[in-house]
Design a protein around this nucleic acid. Structure first.
Length: 891
RNA sequence: GGGCGAUUGGCUCAGUCGGUUAGAGCGCACGGUUCACAUCCGUGAGGUCACUGGUUCGAAUCCAGUAUCGCCCACCA
């Protein structure tokens, strides 16, 4: 469906009818890609888009990301900066396998039945169907990314970057392999990082279990929340200064079921107050115990397999699931009388962020990256200001994490991802190679490649993500893109992945390229549902951005999310906000309809001096352009949105258009004068469209195309608003601003008077005006033309300051007086005031009478004031004092 | 246990360097049948700026403390 130039555009803006064709025009223009070479003297502005997960459906968080970035990108493109926005998708190892596992389960298959190779084939096949989906969805939001540079974290360029980066780390001695207790998800069957573990307070049970002493003389009791792990116990520990147990240290306890002898050791890490004061030591399944076992040179015994079932070390319990084993063990201990206590217990439980399964500490051999030296540089970059974090307070959070960082366990026992480029030779040598085909021979003993076996672990997804800002530009090659666009300008992403991603990009960026990968980190917040609660599928309060696009249009969604965004702070997306945004789009549509529909047919050359209203709107525009520009430069997008919104609705539509109507419809206006007013109307609209384009690209582009046809000279003949220049602020006009602000205040006062006194809407009010000087006189005279139709008053008399004004209306001019004379109006006012029974009215009557009394005194002309009943406009007491002061001056 | 953020009309949020009468949108009340728009226009009511103390000629804003809510980090079995 193509949009046509309807002669009579619909009164309601229909986004769905307009948006798709416009996006096609943008794409066809090729303007999303930067020019072949950078414009001379241009600033660089580059964003690498955070790659959404390849399997993920678009959610509101993606929408916020892409909208915020698109606003920045479009602004800089219009500024003429050398602008690039690189899009891409992430292979998301765990996430993708989680999704695919579910799919193949429905087909009756599993990882085990398919095997690695067929599983990966199946995954690539699945990718074919999902890989482009999210990009297409982002386009519906208007994302003006350079799709020609679209990238995938698992494509060959990325693979190469991963190999080279890892090889360099290896060569620098920053990679090691070692046994460690890592966090394991028994359902995903892989290592996960602490960051991927959700720690929550949960209620569990604390069991107290009696272990007999080996010499048959007494027993010692230990407390545990995980009785099944006792099968892996290697010792019992007490505090060295705990007098209760001093005699037992050095003796042995007997492990139930297995009969293993457990030395009773003393270690200061034991908390005397907790439980019985004695703790079982299970090095393979608890980090504290592991550390303690190392201190006491005790071996670890692993009793769980990769799916958290008891393994062969668990004796008769082998094969049981951990929870089944727990129950069985508790029952048996209870039966034997060795279960001494059982109490409900508040504890912290770690669960896999992906699947919610309770994680297990697991002893295994892992690849680690020694991150301390990398972290130090990453920290210095921020503390020394080479990279700024917005909001600034998150820099402290960033610093705290980097200062306490632990080595990065970078291997994952998964299949979908970059396989670690390390080969083992039968003699145990390790060869790391960055060649696509792997090493030719063992680096240490020279055995041929055929005898080497590659590591089966893959990299943590975040390893390839950490290289993203430069792997997307061709690194490790010194490509033209690297030279021209790196380092990037802004890294815009959610604060929830500050550690996962941002910190790691900083570390790897500095290590690989010796420069900070971006100048500014802009961290947006979460989009929450109405009550401030998180959106979640289980709560059913998830807002689908594409539904909103269908409903209100991409522009309105963009406006709604931008007006609420502030770095580091969450925002709520409420129906009211959505409605407001839709209404704003509609307002723009209609004001444009008016402007385009009011073009004089004469084709006359504009003539005459600009009216005060014209001078005013130009001056306002100048200010607004200046402010918006400053706000966009400072990445204050919400401020920019508010500035532009206020100007469009209040200044332009509510005031200037109304004033322009007066001028366009004034009898006796020449064709040239009308043409001039229209040119201001349309020209201002043109600049407003430029101003709003980064925020609401579709509707502004659509209006632009019509405006361009109607008035090519006003739009500089620019074919596409997308690439039209950002407006430059013109000169301010202080006198026009003060005249119009006086005028609008006067109009408001008259409307107030009418509203408060109940004078019928259609009634003309006579107006007396007294002025204190020529400047004000001419200001009022210029304004009178607008005052008549806009306030429904008719000037009856001009008075100079020595004449007595009748009734009072305060305005910033300080000397405009409004008089109501007509008998019927007076009666109406009196009746309205006297007979209203409400308390508020009653209070007002008192105040009005007081005001009248004072005016009487001041004016010294009681009869005149009585004849023309007085209503004081405005804000009662303070205002009245002001009036009195002015009156005194007048006399 | 540490750290961070928030607290401004009924709701959602602005508020610049400390400076005149603290703003906006929504909601509410009242009024509006004119050819851009009722997804509209006009007018109005409504705020002790969480609390306490301090600095200052002057505090929503700076400092200290308190409260409530939220988030992040942290190995007590």
């Amino acid at each position: 469906m193509t949009t046509t130039r309807r002669r009579e555009p619909a009164p309601r803006y229909d986004a769905a009818a307009v948006e798709p064709a416009i996006y096609e025009r943008w794409l066809a223009s090729g303007a999303f890609a930067p020019a072949v070479s950078a414009p001379r003297g241009a600033r660089r502005f580059v964003i690498t888009m955070p790659p959404p997960n390849v399997t993920g459906a678009l959610h509101i968080g993606h929408a916020l990301t892409v909208i915020v970035e698109d606003v920045m990108i479009r602004y800089h493109r219009m500024r003429g900066d050398d602008t690039l926005w690189v899009p891409g998708v992430d292979h998301a190892s765990i996430g993708a396998q989680f999704v695919l596992d579910k799919i193949i389960a429905e087909e009756g298959e599993s990882r085990a039945t398919l095997g690695r190779e067929r599983y990966l084939e199946r995954m690539w096949q699945f990718m074919d169907s999902t890989r482009d989906v999210i990009g297409l969805q982002l386009r519906r939001l208007g994302a003006s990314a350079d799709w020609g540079r679209n990238r995938f974290t698992l494509d060959e360029q990325s693979a190469r970057a991963v190999r080279v980066a890892f090889k360099r780390l290896w060569d620098a001695g920053l990679v090691y392999r070692g046994e460690a207790l890592i966090t394991w998800c028994p359902r995903c069957r892989t290592t996960i990082s602490d960051l991927e573990t959700i720690h929550r307070d949960e209620t569990g049970t604390l069991w107290t279990i009696r272990y007999a002493l080996a010499d048959g003389d007494g027993s010692i009791s230990v407390a545990t929340t995980r009785p099944e792990t006792l099968l892996g116990d290697v010792a019992v520990a007490v505090h060295p200064e705990d007098h209760r147990y001093r005699a037992l240290v050095g003796r042995e306890a007997v492990l139930p079921f297995l009969g293993r002898r457990l030395p009773i050791i003393a270690d200061a890490a034991v908390q005397r107050e907790f439980g019985s004061g004695a703790v079982k030591i299970t090095p393979a399944h608890d980090p504290n115990d592991y550390a303690m076992a190392k201190r006491h040179e005790l071996a670890a015994i692993n009793v769980l397999d990769e799916e958290a079932r008891m393994n062969e070390n668990a004796g008769e319990f082998a094969g049981l699931d951990r929870y089944a084993a727990r129950q069985e063990i508790v029952e048996r201990l209870r039966a034997s009388g060795d279960l001494q206590a059982e109490q409900s217990h508040q504890m912290v439980v770690g669960r896999c962020e992906r699947c919610g399964t309770v994680v297990e500490p697991r002893l295994s051999v892992q690849w680690f990256i020694r991150v301390k030296p990398l972290a130090e540089r990453a920290l210095a970059s921020v503390t020394q200001g080479r990279t700024a974090i917005m909001p600034p307070h998150l820099a402290k959070v960033y610093a705290h994490w980097l200062e306490n960082i632990l080595d990065w366990a970078v291997g994952r026992q998964l299949w979908w991802g970059h396989r670690i480029p390390a080969w083992f030779c039968p003699d145990g040598h390790v060869t790391v190679s960055d060649a696509a085909e792997g090493p030719h021979a063992c680096a240490e003993c020279g055995r041929p490649a055929g005898e080497l076996n590659q590591e089966t672990d893959i990299f943590d997804t975040w390893f390839s993500s950490a290289l993203w800002p430069f792997s997307t530009l061709g690194w490790p090659d010194e490509t033209p893109d690297m030279a021209r666009f790196y380092p990037t300008t802004v890294m815009e992403t959610g604060y929830d992945i500050l550690f996962f991603w941002v910190a790691r990009m900083m570390m790897m960026g500095l290590f690989c390229t010796d420069v900070e990968p971006f100048r500014i980190v802009y961290l947006h917040g979460l989009v929450r549902a109405s009550g401030g609660v998180k959106m979640s599928k289980t709560k059913g309060n998830v807002v689908d951005p594409l539904d909103l696009v269908d409903e209100i249009g991409a522009d309105a969604l963009r406006f709604a999310l931008t007006i609420g965004t502030s770095p580091g702070h969450d925002q709520r997306l409420t129906q009211a906000k959505v409605d407001g945004a839709r209404n704003f789009a509609n307002k723009l549509w209609n004001v444009a309809r008016f402007v385009l529909g009011s073009q004089p047919d004469s084709g006359a050359t504009p003539s005459g001096d600009a009216s005060v209203a014209e001078r005013w709107i130009r001056s306002r525009l100048a200010e607004v352009v200046e402010r918006s520009t400053a706000q966009l430069e400072a990445l204050d997008l919400a401020g920019y949105a508010a500035t532009a919104h206020e100007f469009a609705w209040s200044d332009y539509a509510d005031w200037f258009v109304e004033m322009a109507k007066v001028e366009l419809r004034r009898e006796g206006a020449s064709q040239g004068e009308r043409a001039r007013v229209w040119a201001t109307l349309a020209g201002t609209l043109g600049d407003l469209l430029r101003l709003l384009h980064p925020l609401m690209p579709f509707i502004t582009e659509e209006i632009w195309s019509v405006l361009r046809d109607a008035a090519p000279s006003l739009t500089d003949g620019e074919e596409l608003l997308l690439t039209a220049p950002w407006p430059t602020p013109g000169p301010r006009d202080a006198s026009a601003e003060s005249e119009v602000s006086a005028l609008t205040a006067l109009i408001r006062d008259v409307r107030n008077l009418r509203s408060e006194s109940g004078v019928a809407a259609g009634t003309w009010l006579p107006l007396f005006v007294a002025v204190t000087g020529d400047a004000q006189r001419s200001a009022i005279e210029r304004g009178i033309g607008y005052l008549e139709p806009m306030a429904r008053v008719r000037p009856v008399q001009f008075a100079t300051s020595d004449q007595r004004p009748a009734l009072v209306a305060a305005t910033p001019l300080g000397a405009a007086w409004l008089g109501v004379e007509a008998a019927e109006v007076a009666a109406g006012v009196a009746a309205g005031v006297e007979h209203d029974s409400s308390e508020r009215r009653a209070r007002r009557v008192v105040e009005l009478r007081a005001a009248i009394d004072r005016l009487r005194t001041l004016l010294g002309n009681a009869s005149f004031v009585e004849r023309a009943p007085v209503t004081v406009v405005g804000k009662e007491r303070a205002r009245l004092a002001e009036l009195e002061a002015q009156l005194r001056q007048l006399r």
